[in-house]
Design a binder for these strands. Structure first.
Lengths: 131, 131
DNA sequence: GCTAAACCTTACAGTTAGAGGAAGGTCAAT
DNA sequence: ATTGACCTTCCTCTAACTGTAAGGTTTAGC
């Protein structure tokens, strides 16, 4: 299977697939006589794995850890559990920050007329010299 | 006022302040005889403005627009209102995505034993060849 | 006066996770 | 023979800084 077919199946960009190979994240597929990459099921599974892990917000380095746990038959599921619960905590923290931003911006929005006048509480607030 | 004092007051890193100057985001302060930057109130206000706008999640380019609206006495508050409500929508979308990630990861977490065994639903799920 | 710490300067490289583009080889259909 | 759709590598670019190197300046202590 050639790269564009793999891209179609996994939902990853061909550029991304080559990138993952270049940084040593996935096994390098063998090449055909013409130099084209020839992918097998093994590679497809790795790429699916990566696509899912990335969608869940794991960084490339975290994906590396997850892949290595996946490949290791002696893994302790506690390690996976720990990686994932850390990630959930990161996400929760991120959500809290975004909610706070949204809250303050929304409060400012209702105070800004939003018309042809130049008066604007938002701009004034941004210019305040305080936290 | 020299750069480290400005950094302390505004909560920005000195590196960041020089960076903002370099990309033309803020006015360049005059220099003392020894070449050191000498900041005045005008610069402090700009930097406060930037710190707040960045904290609210505006990109550097959006900050540029906001700064220009701030500087323009003929601005229409509607423009500010529009920039901010777009940002609120971005934030809401972002929150929705994070919540979905968290939801799925949390569901997986309860199914992973998290002990010394190697069985792990999470790993299995990541390796699935489906969306 | 000397020295060390704590500033300041510029310039360059590195970070994340790819995307975009150039230049060129290959393959299938017309 | 040519066109278009693939494939290859290599290089540059993105955002918003941060780190590091190499060097100049100022200040405090002895």
């Amino acid at each position: 299977m050639k790269i564009s077919e793999v891209a179609k199946q996994t939902g990853l960009n061909a550029k991304t697939i080559r990138y993952y190979e270049r940084i040593g994240l996935v096994d390098r597929p063998p090449r055909l006589e013409n130099g084209y990459r020839e992918y097998a099921d093994q590679h497809l599974r790795q790429l699916w794995f990566l696509r899912h892990a990335r969608q869940f917000g794991f960084s490339i380095d975290e994906c590396r850890e997850l892949l290595s746990l996946w490949a290791n038959p002696n893994r302790r599921s506690a390690e996976v559990h720990s990686l994932v619960s850390d990630k959930v905590r990161d996400i929760e923290q991120h959500i809290r920050e975004l909610r706070e931003m949204k809250k303050v911006l929304t409060e400012l929005l209702v105070k800004c007329p939003g018309d042809d006048s130049s008066e604007c509480v938002i701009i004034d607030e941004l210019a305040q010299n305080k936290d």
